[in-house]
């Protein structure tokens, strides 16, 4: 095949993949529904993507409404989310088929235990921050959290099963506003 043509295809693909990533994330941020998930930040590091605050959204398992559903490890799952009276989102059920409406997040199953309980990882586990600020963010969270009262949450946009973090809040203020 012509070398120039191969080059043109390669460049197109190399530019298309990151562009597509950007376009799909922007679509979710602009059109997604807003949810608040309680979270707890800690401070690890990613060699390629730099410093981030790891988030633990607390809830990692759900008791199924239908006992007959069997999940395999790594299987795609749609977790249904619902907002409680205090305004925080929780996972209330898990389905194998894409549900109607927009109140679900697509993720994978860690494993199924005790027959009717499914463990999963919500794809809301990283909040990237500047190298100097990430450790301070963790410190800030520790100082602001008292026993039985965790004051950190993430604002999340959800659209067609994709969940995207919009911001990390401590004491109802964006984490960036503390620095």
């Amino acid at each position: 095949m012509n070398k120039r043509l191969v080059f043109a295809i390669l460049v197109t693909a190399q530019l298309a993949v990151p562009s597509w990533m950007i376009a799909s994330q922007e679509h979710v941020l602009r059109n997604g529904d807003l949810y608040k998930f309680k979270t707890a930040p800690v401070d690890p590091y990613d060699i390629f993507r730099g410093r981030y605050v790891a988030l633990s959204t607390g809830q990692r398992s759900i008791k199924l409404s239908n006992n007959n559903i069997k999940f395999d490890r790594g299987q795609e799952v749609f977790v249904i989310i619902k907002t409680d009276s205090q305004g925080f989102a929780h996972v209330v059920d898990a389905k194998t088929q894409k549900p109607k409406g927009n109140n679900y997040i697509k993720t994978t199953v860690s494993y199924q235990s005790y027959g009717d309980t499914v463990r999963f990882n919500l794809p809301l586990n990283r909040y990237y921050m500047n190298e100097e600020k990430a450790p301070q963010a963790e410190q800030l969270y520790r100082e602001n959290s008292r026993r039985n009262k965790q004051d950190a949450y993430v604002l999340v946009r959800v659209l067609n099963g994709t969940a995207l973090i919009e911001g990390l809040y401590v004491n109802n203020k964006p984490i960036e506003s503390y620095f």
């Binding site: 693909a13 190399q14 993949v17 950007i22 990613d46 981030y52 586990n125 995207l164």
Partner: peptide, 27 residues
């Protein structure tokens, strides 16, 4: 690799390193 990693950083995407590596290598 840098471009894909940076976009994951900007949008706080979860760290699924396997799909990142596969896309990077195929490109």
């Amino acid at each position: 690799g840098g471009a894909i990693a940076l976009i994951s950083q900007i949008y706080h995407l979860p760290g699924d390193i396997d799909s990142f590596l596969l896309t990077w290598m195929l490109l």
